[in-house]
Design a protein around this nucleic acid. Sequence first.
DNA 1: TATCATT
Length: 360
Amino acid sequence: MMANGMDTVVQQNGNSALGQTSQEESKTNLIVNYLPQTMTQEEIRSLFSSIGEVESCKLIRDKLTGQSLGYGFVNYHRPEDAEKAINTLNGLRLQNKTIKVSYARPSSEAIKGANLYVSGLPKNMAQQDLENLFSPYGRIITSRILCDNMSGLSKGVGFIRFDQRVEAERAIQELNGTIPKGSTEPITVKFANNPSNNNKAIPPLAAYLTPQATRRFGGPIHHPTGRFRYIPLSPLSSTGKTMLAINKGLQSRYSPLAGDLLANSMLPGNAMNGSGWCIFVYNLAPETEENVLWQLFGPFGAVQSVKVIRDLQTNKCKGFGFVTMTNYEEAVVAIQSLNGYTLGNRVLQVSFKTNKSKAA
DNA sequence: TATCATT
């Protein structure tokens, strides 16, 4: 990132990538939250480039291990593209996540360390109740109540992120040890641990030397197995067919059909191109845009890129497009699920790409 | 009783 030592002074600004002063609101800079763990910076850039030209894109990673922290920044050249990205990509389901796209606040010390951990909550308290409890003390950026993955019931702990640290400090003073209306137990309110320096049992030097091994077998892992369970919600707005298609795809995840598809893709001109599996999508409507392909394929796994093929004169879709997915298994499930899926009034044909771009 | 929101 830092090209040379001359950048030192500008870097202290904290907003050097934007070329703006640190107090100034940006209409082009977005923060993207709840990104899938495996999504790369280039995949994020690819996704957001489907809206408009991206000026810069940065995935935030753990300084020691390089692991994604699940959020990043996208800065557009044009404010209208940033607005369109919020309107079309906020709430997009990708793998096991629903991403959040919003304007980035200007970076400053005052907004750091404003996240609170709350425990001892009554089990019947909902997210909105939690916000109502904390909202008198400041502007809430996010709120969350943790639930048991199997039962869906509250675990009685949650998080509140305020806009300003002073707001969080005030909330601790006022609410820690108090008993919410209708409850019998006092709640605990304190600053949340910072997830990026989670050095509780990981010797930093060992983590640096063997990041993968330490991550997997060494320190405590706060990822319950169920966290990565795929919850088959509709990627589009709740048509029954979509639900059916996805459920069918998941159930047949390890079906023998996968072998046939693999054999097919290994023919000359196969779908495997260097870093991913190229999927041919046929019978798209003329007005189809890239975000449709992201919505269709994103829930099935890592999508590297999408492309709608357009007529150069009219700029309308010529009826087909391509999607490149990283993992073979996920590509198979996507194909099995989406081939034959009715989008609008059209039945899609979805297969691995062949040499002659001919529908299989 | 611990999620990945400030480069």
